[in-house]
Design a protein around this nucleic acid. Structure first.
Lengths: 218, 218
DNA sequence: GGAGCCAATAATGTCGACACTCGCTACATC
DNA sequence: GATGTAGCGAGTGTCGACATTATTGGCTCC
């Protein structure tokens, strides 16, 4: 009997299950999602499946092709557009965090950076803790709408298969950039925090573009 | 929020019907929404109602109170938070519009301002065309994610009963501010466009706060 | 008289079945 | 050989019924 809450899902709903299936890559961008198939896979009826699909569609993770739903995909332009929006929102989060975060929240961010220095070799672990770091940054803004909008952005990014952290040598640099963000917030310097985030995401974007370009076949 | 302008009442789906009911004020913030009641009101079964409610919930227009759904409401803090996010996103839209909009799009924005000068006395008409103006501004950014995020913001604003345009004397001033935005975009001056939007929304927020304060009873 | 418990009720969550639509294939016709 | 057409099947949209769970109101007991 599994007792580790993190490993075995206790009664997760259809929404989480489908989202994870997309994350893991069972359904890739462009795949068609058939209600009855999902229902059978997860051992429930079509009703909860349909509701989960509705939610995923309103979040733009799924899109309609005729009458059926397929996993949305991001072409180059859309990815660029997404980064622009993400930068604007996450920059705002950093600025607000510099103004509104508690000392404890800043400490937590600082600790996260330091702990991560021990994981620079494990790309998967780094990707996970990177997500946590950014999420914590969002929360530190103390703005619920912003957190919500950034959640949406991050969910869309799940459609992008790889994380830029997997690229050789990106990990340590990204951590330095995280440190700059935390330092600016700790100094209560909103402008610097904004700029640090902008710089960080710009670098991440460049890394991704470079990585994608190398994968091109023509 | 009528998406189908001037159309006949063709078979709108449950989502639109509920949204309109909220807009019109049949269900006010805090009201409890009962599935069977909505189903009867609109003459459909609970299934489509449930799916509509799911969508509205994921868009944060509805919120859970225990197991049931109620129309979300925005307290003072949330309204302030919403304005911050809106300003950041709409400022970005203006900046991008200055960079990417076509001449035709700018012309359209300019026309909208001029036409609206004829409606300054009709608060309801002004509110409608104000929404259209801002929507057009969003589209001029040529960034689909941004448009989508701003759609969300505007839908949340539907929870705020009044529009600041209804306040005495706000109409003409708001139009001047719109003109400033259009001029900056026309000049391809992204910074100025950003600042003009920031100014515009700041004024709108002040107006709303003043209006709300006057409505207080203590 | 108040607190706690239990039953009745109302509302949500889930299900299987049916209706309808659209795309596909196979056949026939020109 | 190409094109139109009729039938078929897969898949979605909708429904009513049943299961499950919160809530409320009344009742008992302290």
């Amino acid at each position: 009997m599994s007792t580790l809450a993190t490993s075995r899902p206790t009664q997760r709903d259809a929404y989480d299950l489908i989202l994870e299936a997309i994350d893991v890559g069972v359904y890739k961008p462009g795949s068609r999602l058939v209600e009855s198939e999902l229902a059978e896979r997860f051992g429930v009826s079509r009703t909860p499946i349909r509701e989960a699909l509705q939610r995923l569609e309103t979040q733009s993770l799924l899109t309609r092709d005729g009458r059926s739903l397929i996993v949305a995909s991001l072409d180059h332009n859309q990815m660029a557009e997404l980064y622009v929006v993400r930068t604007q929102l996450e920059g705002l989060a950093a600025r607000l965090a510099a103004q509104h975060s508690s000392v404890e929240e800043v400490n937590l961010l600082q600790q996260m950076v330091e702990v991560d220095r021990g994981h620079v070799l494990d790309a998967a672990a780094l990707a996970r803790s990177n997500k946590r770091f950014h999420k914590q940054l969002h929360l530190a803004s103390h703005n619920r709408f912003l957190v919500q909008q950034l959640d949406l952005v991050y969910r869309s990014m799940a459609l992008l298969a790889t994380t830029s952290l997997a690229v050789e040598g990106r990990g340590p640099i990204a951590l330095d950039e995280h440190q700059s963000i935390v330092t600016a917030i700790s100094d209560r310097d909103g402008i610097a925090a904004y700029e640090a985030v902008k710089q960080h995401l710009s670098q991440a974007f460049v890394t991704r573009l470079k990585h994608d370009a190398e994968g091109q076949s023509y």
